[in-house]
């Protein structure tokens, strides 16, 4: 079995099992702790829409805060946008997703993907540097913060290398790329990459809690 065969076969399967297992474990385990039902008289009763509203509105900071967090605001958008374009609209990636999902969607030219991937990598490196140097971020950071950046950064770099056939033979680069993605999938449920899933319930519960008090979350 070659490295590539391992990476696209058993390696991928195990990574996916751990990924799915870990996510359900953590989400169910946290949500199932349950909270007491709030029986105070609500100011507004339509808490569902308030919750959904918060899922949307927390994507951009309130006016009073925007100036202070502009760097993170802009880089945050640049990072996620560039990442999602690179992951979701690269033709080989779409074929990868199609092999499990059974459906596909239009792709973008590789040149654009190369640009977004380089942007994503550059922004992530900038964020890494910020985390290592900004007084607050450096102070509050733990291993998870760095591991989570690392396990996302490596697939990006190996992806770009594989795409450009640079540094080693293509099948080796592709295998390493896949393996790095698998490492990311395995780490995902255990670290803060989980925010990809948790953001929705967290924002939603904030929206409902504020909403019933008549406050826009």
């Amino acid at each position: 079995m070659t490295l590539l065969e391992f990476a696209s076969g058993p390696g991928l399967q195990w990574a996916l099992w751990i990924f799915v297992f870990g996510i359900t474990w953590r989400v169910v385990g946290a949500v199932f702790l349950l909270s007491r039902k709030d029986i105070s008289k609500p100011r507004h009763t339509n808490t569902i829409s308030a919750g959904l509203g918060a899922v949307w509105s927390r994507s951009s900071p309130a006016r009073a805060f925007e100036k202070k967090i502009r760097f993170q605001h802009v880089t945050g958008y640049a990072w996620h946008f560039a990442l999602f374009i690179s992951v979701l609209f690269f033709a080989p990636h779409i074929l990868f997703f199609e092999s499990v999902l059974g459906f596909s969607w239009p792709h973008l030219p590789n040149t654009i993907i190369l640009i977004t991937a380089i942007v994503a990598t550059a922004v992530l490196i900038a964020l890494l540097i910020r985390r290592a140097t900004h007084p607050v971020q450096r102070f509050i950071s733990n291993a998870d913060d760095y591991i989570s950046i690392f396990v996302v950064l490596v697939p990006l770099v190996t992806g770009i290398l594989a795409f450009t056939h640079f540094g080693a033979r293509y099948e080796t680069l592709l295998a390493v790329h896949l393996l790095s993605v698998e490492v990311m999938l395995i780490w995902f449920p255990f670290g803060k990459l989980m925010h990809m899933i948790m953001t929705i319930p967290a924002r939603f519960q904030a929206g409902t809690a504020f909403g019933r008090r008549g406050v826009k979350a």
Partner: peptide, 8 residues
Amino acid sequence: PISAGQWG
């Protein structure tokens, strides 16, 4: 396709 994986 080469990039297709075996998802199990």
